[in-house]
Amino acid sequence: MAEPLPPELSELEHLLAARGGPAPDANVKLRVLRAVKSELRSSDSWRLWRQHSWRFAAGVAAVVLFWLNLSMFAANHTEWNFNRNDGSHGETLAMAREIRELLPELTEGEALRQAALLQTNARALPIPIVPGQQARWVNAKKLLEE
């Protein structure tokens, strides 16, 4: 507990309390409030960004996980089936066996896929039409139209 001040110091205390002083310029209020507004905006935008970035990241992670699961599911449930009316499957099977002999680490399914791709590539190639080369290729679309 502070001791009471002697009268002369108490009087000086009252004198100090009653003293005038410079008032801040009117522009100071505008300046301070402008700074407050700017700080509020930046802190709010930072807060919003944090909230939304978290949600965005969570959304992206969910989509990626879903896609991974879906693609794994599709890959694990895909079977290779030959058309009974197409007599070329013996050729594809032979090519798949050769591929497996060369690359035994490949699964049967992957060997069949590679064989199918090779056969398709041997019959129809997606290439740009170069002038002077038309005689070498038959355009599949034109054949369909005919």
Binding site: P24, D25, R31, V32, L33, A35, V36, E39, S43
Partner: peptide, 16 residues
């Protein structure tokens, strides 16, 4: 003094 008062208000925003 003006700068100090402004600093007080800005720090107030940051310390909300």
């Amino acid at each position: 003094a003006e700068d100090a008062v402004q600093d007080v208000f800005v720090s107030l925003v940051r310390a909300r």
